[in-house]
Design a protein around this nucleic acid. Structure first.
Lengths: 196, 196
DNA sequence: CTAATATACGGAACGCTGATCCGTTTTCCA
DNA sequence: TGGAAAACGGATCAGCGTTCCGTATATTAG
């Protein structure tokens, strides 16, 4: 497969100074463009914003997913690390799950087009989906299992299923006053609670 | 806006015979291509399948949405008409709502990429979204209101909200054994029932 | 400090897709 | 049957992703 193996935060030694500089410049430019034009913005737009050639962006981030992952790595990590913390501090496992889901939902809603990209079958977004799943599903699983164990939630729903459901609910323009993803995510969580 | 005003089923009089023939040919070709390549299949592919030029397809269906709407019109109508019938025959309003939602879900799940298209901000899919909303939201509203009136569901959720939530849950590859849209839709419906 | 070499850069170029536009062909009616 | 109106076909333009290679730059050996 293609390179998710990049480690932009702690770049390998021996790289040329200009390469490292460009890498940072690109990340900043991409972050800025993602905010205004969404994660599906034309590569050329990002390259232009960074003031580099198209070749450079492909060299550093062979796949669109690599770039997106690099840009949002911090926040995904934060979300992942919040899981155990919330579980330890919240009043109940379900409360922790709720808080975590809120975190996750906010993340998706505020990143223009990210939820779409996670499900998009087109583009080079496969690695993005994989990264999210690998990093967050275990966290979600822990919260979910704990909530089942505490009897606050009925068993039978897997962490991937839940996360993808939430992700899907966050797809689409988020400026629409008639559709608030958070409300529906809440409904979904209610559905997980045993009514009887 | 662009033409959803086409009425392919009862074509306006005065149209030329070859035009009518091509219209039908195109609908058939599009239906076939949609099954194999999804509703986002290249226009050229549909044109080729129908044995017509690109110009012809654009003349008959200026927007991608026009073509999709024309292809699925029958099924959308059927779904719309099923609403009142179910409400009249089911054991309870909630039962009717459930059955209708199943119908709607099946429709989306079996039409490759349709759910995606309904939310896609790109492409000429706006009219598609509009058509679905105009035709089905009132039906859903009737079922929803009845269910609220019967006390089986908590108030506060709008028909558009619900339908879009369901639509969103149906987005993505439906061959994935780890994600069954129907299960999550069911969860959402459970969430609508008053837990207390 | 300079030369040699690896490394990185830039952007031209190719393929695919959507959309338009106009010369040609077909239909149909007077 | 002749000719205008309607429809057709596909060449063509524009946008985007992706590849590729000649050129420029950093690094290091001497």
């Amino acid at each position: 497969m293609s390179a998710t193996s990049q480690s932009p935060e702690v770049p390998a030694r021996g790289k040329r100074a200009d390469a490292l500089r460009n890498q940072q410049t690109l990340l900043a430019a991409a972050a800025a463009v993602f905010v205004t034009s969404g994660v599906e913005a034309p590569i050329r737009e990002i390259a232009a914003r960074a003031g580099v050639g198209i070749g450079t962006i492909y060299r550093h981030f062979p796949t669109r997913a690599d770039l997106v992952v690099a840009v949002y790595r911090h926040q995904v990590e934060a979300c992942a690390e919040a899981g155990p913390t919330l579980l330890a501090n919240a009043a109940s496992p379900l409360a922790a799950l709720r808080q975590w889901v809120d975190l996750f939902t906010d993340f998706l809603v505020t990143k223009h087009g990210l939820a779409n990209a996670l499900q998009s079958d087109t583009g080079g977004f496969d690695a993005l989906h994989t990264y999210f799943v690998d990093r967050l599903v275990p966290v979600c699983a822990q919260l979910l299992d704990a909530s089942v164990d505490s009897g606050e939630i009925v068993p039978g729903t897997g962490p991937y299923e839940l996360m993808r459901g939430i992700g899907n609910l966050c797809i689409g323009r988020n400026n629409d006053p008639a559709y608030d993803p958070r409300r529906l995510v809440d409904l979904l969580l209610r559905g997980l609670q045993q009514p009887r």
